[in-house]
C-alpha cells in the first residue's frame, strides 16, 4: 500500500532550541498514528511542522494527492498550502476555543468550511450542520447557540464536527481529549474511533496518555527531547518497550 503522507528528516528549531529533530515516518490511508511523550518532548512541534503550520528548519513533508501525484509541501505556494489545509486536511486543537469561532453560532462553525469551499445554499448548509451536530451527539436544537454556551466536552465535539464536515483525508489532532473529564474523554474517543473508521480517515494524534494510544492507534512513535526514540506497533511498544525512556514511561502509568 502506498503512503498518504511521507515525512523525512523533519526538524523545527526555535532559534537555538530544538523543537523536533530529524523525524521520519510514513502514514498510510485509513491509519491512526499516535505520538506520545512527556510535556516538552516536541510532540506538538512535530505535529504542527508536519501539518505545515510551522516551517521546517530542515527535512521534507510530502503528501499523496487524490489524483496520484505527490506534493512537496515546501514547494507549494502559501495560497495552495492554505487550500490544502482547508479542503483535504483538518486540524483539531487541544483547546477547542482555539479551533472554534466563538462569536458565531454552532451551526455556522460547522458550515464555515463548506462555505469557504463554495457551498451557498442556506437550507442545505443548515441540514448538513444539523446532521453533523447529531453525529457528534450535540442536540441539533442548539444549532443557533454560541459555542461559549457549551461545556468543554461539547465544544471539543463541535470542533471535531467543524473539522470533519468537509470529509478531509488527513486529520492532525493535538491532545484532543486532554483536560476533559474521564467520562467525556471516553465519549470523544469512541466518537473519533467510529468516525475514523466510517470515513476512512488517516490521522496523526498527539497524546501523553498511553491508554489512548493503545485503544486508538495501531502504530505509535515515542518522543523524548525532540527526537523519536522508539517507533512501531502500539501494543509492542507498550508491552515490550525497548528504549530506556519508553520503559520509564510505560512503568510510570498508574493502573486501576
Amino acid at each position: 500500500m502506498s503512503a498518504l503522507l511521507q515525512v523525512r528528516g523533519l526538524s523545527h528549531h526555535y532559534g537555538q532550541r530544538i523543537g523536533c529533530q530529524d523525524v521520519s515516518f510514513d502514514l498510510h490511508p485509513g491509519e491512526l498514528l499516535c505520538i506520545v511523550g512527556e510535556s516538552g518532548s516536541g510532540k506538538s512541534t512535530l505535529l504542527k511542522t508536519a501539518a505545515a503550520q510551522l516551517a521546517p528548519s530542515s527535512g521534507s513533508v510530502r503528501y499523496h494527492q487524490r489524483d496520484g501525484d505527490w506534493l512537496d509541501l515546501e514547494e507549494l505556494s502559501e495560497a495552495n498550502r492554505r487550500r490544502l489545509a482547508r479542503e483535504e486536511w483538518g486540524f483539531v486543537t487541544q483547546n477547542p476555543r482555539d479551533g472554534l469561532r466563538l462569536n458565531v453560532s454552532a451551526g455556522a462553525n460547522v458550515a464555515e468550511r463548506l462555505m469557504a469551499m463554495g457551498m451557498r445554499n442556506y437550507g442545505q448548509l443548515r441540514d448538513i450542520a444539523k446532521g453533523w451536530l447529531e453525529r457528534v451527539e450535540i442536540d441539533p436544537a442548539r444549532i443557533d447557540d454560541a459555542p461559549t454556551a457549551f461545556s468543554g466536552g461539547m465544544q471539543q465535539r463541535l470542533q471535531i464536527a467543524r473539522t470533519l464536515v468537509t470529509q478531509p483525508r488527513l486529520v492532525f489532532m493535538d491532545e484532543p481529549t486532554a483536560g476533559l473529564d474521564v467520562s467525556v474523554q471516553a465519549r470523544i474517543l469512541d466518537l473519533l474511533r467510529r468516525l475514523v473508521n466510517e470515513l476512512g480517515l488517516a490521522a496523526v494524534m498527539v497524546t501523553h496518555d498511553l491508554a489512548v494510544a493503545r485503544l486508538l492507534a495501531a502504530r505509535t512513535m515515542v518522543m523524548q527531547g525532540g527526537r523519536v526514540v522508539e517507533t512501531g506497533l502500539t501494543d509492542q511498544i507498550l508491552d515490550d518497550p525497548q528504549h530506556p525512556y519508553t520503559q520509564l514511561l510505560v512503568s510510570s502509568v498508574l493502573t486501576t
Partner: peptide
C-alpha cells in the same frame, strides 16, 4: 504466543 503475535519483539 506474544512473540509469535509480534506483541513481544
Amino acid at each position: 504466543l506474544r512473540v509469535i503475535y509480534a506483541n513481544y519483539r
